[in-house]
């Protein structure tokens, strides 16, 4: 028997929420970036599960694009962190709050 799609979706949801918690709780910007990758992955899992459920390849192709965009995002994000570290000497996300009203 095949595994029901709902199980995958539930796992995807749990992983997504864990990613959200990572973003909301951690102050290390590299870990926050990792949490975003986790959220992307949970979404990918949901895509793949739906693709199997509907027997459509489109979902898999979309995951391919998501991975490509994620790679680009990580490249930019990490280079920004490097840049911030150079100017401020740390990567604490809470230190970057010049826009405080």
């Amino acid at each position: 028997m095949t595994i029901p799609t709902n199980y995958f979706l539930a796992l995807s949801g749990v992983l997504f929420i864990l990613g959200v918690l990572g973003v909301l709780i951690r102050r290390n910007s590299i870990v926050i970036l990792m949490s975003i990758e986790l959220m992307l992955n949970s979404a990918n899992l949901a895509f793949i599960a739906f693709a199997r459920a509907f027997e459509a390849h489109t979902g898999q192709v979309l995951v391919f694009f998501v991975i490509a965009v994620g790679a680009a995002e990580v490249a930019i994000g990490l280079s920004m962190i490097v840049s911030i570290y150079r100017s401020r000497g740390n990567i604490d996300i809470d230190q970057i709050s010049q826009l405080k009203g």
């Binding site: 595994i3 995958f8 796992l11 899992l45 793949i48 693709a51």
Partner: peptide
């Protein structure tokens, strides 16, 4: 590995 279980070997 889960992707493999979901018939998505390429991904």
């Amino acid at each position: 590995v889960l992707f493999l279980l979901l018939n998505a070997p390429f991904i």
